[in-house]
Amino acid sequence: MKLFRTKTAVTMTGLLALSVVGCASTPTPQELLDARSAYQHAQSGPAMQYTPDQVHEAKVALDKAEQSYVDDPGDQKTKDLAYVAQRRAELAEANAANSQAQSVKGQAENDTKQTTKGQLAQTRGQLALTGAQLGSTTQALAGSQQQLESEKKAHADADKRAKDAMDRLAMSIGAVKQEPRGMVITLSGSVLFASNKDALLPAAQERLGQVADALKTQDDHKIVVEGHTDSQGSAASNQGLSERRAQSVVSFLVSRGVPQNQIRAEGLGLNRPVADNGSPEGRANNRRVEIIVQPVEGR
């Protein structure tokens, strides 16, 4: 009886020991293998950066499953705890992916903001530049208008001075006429030259001096000095004489300050009479020098 009791006690103790230690040869449940793998994956990925607290929770859950496996390898509890641990690891990874996506979104939104800001600044810069260019163009236009006005005024003043001078000349020597070819000053040949000569008479110089003073005011006008003769003698000799006389007048006027590039001489001989060469008066009128102050083109 004693032996039986002792055997019973030993058997029960063995059963208890078996129930506590579990069967050491029980294969590791698939759930636990999956949980370990999921945790390893989470631990080595971005979850460690974005959701380290959740990775830690996964580790705590895995530790519980491991402990359960040590305590009782065949217990369903181990599989349940391992299942939960796997989900915890996957949760940590999912939340990390979410944080990553939000980070990308934030970065992109920031990029958009910065780009828009830059473009706005550029547009403002261009606007300011355009405004400045507009300002300087307006200023230049105003300057041009002012210059135009002052040039117009200067021309008007010059024209007035020229007209006044011609008026004064007309009053002193009489023969000044406005014709389509310009203002024509006619000087009698007999007043300027001796017969068949081209040298100016001393008395002519005073009168031509007045003419020179008037011509000096004729800025921009071209001046033509024409020599004319009567029909006495050959055409060729009259042509030569008219040319020399015109040149004598030009030389005198230039010596009195009329710009050389503004004036030229032309001999027309007997070709353009203004009166009948049949009478002494007519021939006297035809022997003449005409000074034409030509109009300025565009004014």
């Binding site: 979410n98 939000q102 990308v104 939104e109 958009t112």
Partner: peptide
Amino acid sequence: VAVSNVQAGTAVDEARAV
């Protein structure tokens, strides 16, 4: 995650377009 991925994609496209 799915919603955030869509939003991130839209934001990236917008940034690229701008």
